[in-house]
Amino acid sequence: MSLTKQQIAQRIAKEVKDGYYVNLGIGIPTLVANYVREDISVEFQSENGVLGMGPFPFEGEEDADIINAGKQTITTLPGASFFDSSLSFGMIRGQHVDLTILGAMEVAQNGDIANWKIPGKMVKGMGGAMDLVSSAENIIVAMMHTNRAGKSKLLKECSLPLTGVQCVKKIVSNLAVLEVTPEGFLLLERAPGVSVEEIQAATEGKLIVNGDIPEMVV
């Protein structure tokens, strides 16, 4: 069975370590916050200028002046801080943020990522994605392995305009956990009940399979 979006978020949450400052992108990455272990200390950064993001407010307690990068009303936790956009991207470019989790339309086997533009169709802009992928040391991509038509999104080369070059280190998809290596996509874990052959069939880029591949625990 391939993973649901919630399960992808759940699996990525295991990569979040004690003491990490984490930037979460919009979509599946936002869900990761729900699954981080409660016995570790983690702070979430939102690039519009907040560290120490908390859950959504209770009804009636929304504050128009406190939102996340998805423009959703949020709360802050003890120890939180606000800052301007320059300092926000300063902490991203300056590599003070330990982990960046974002979505992708395509990833290439060399770590290139495309997630901001479909020429002629979708031109909403890159937001902070180009800054994040060009600077972060530790980037995990949350994505579906194939598009709705069943075509692979893990490619030899990206076909869409790039967001960043050779920057993705790890991918958690609905089918697998993969590491991006100089040789290609190294298969680390399979979704429960998904075979190596199924993953191979859904991966256009070079897939490296070394020995037995364990099922992921979610």
Binding site: S86, S88, R93, G128, M130, S135
Partner: peptide
């Protein structure tokens, strides 16, 4: 890119003609 937008504002504010960024 959003960080580039921010820094192009800040550069104008603080008298820097241009800045180098890895973004993009």
């Amino acid at each position: 890119p959003q960080g580039t937008l921010a820094e192009r504002c800040r550069a104008a504010q603080v008298g820097l003609p241009a800045v180098y960024t890895p973004a993009g």
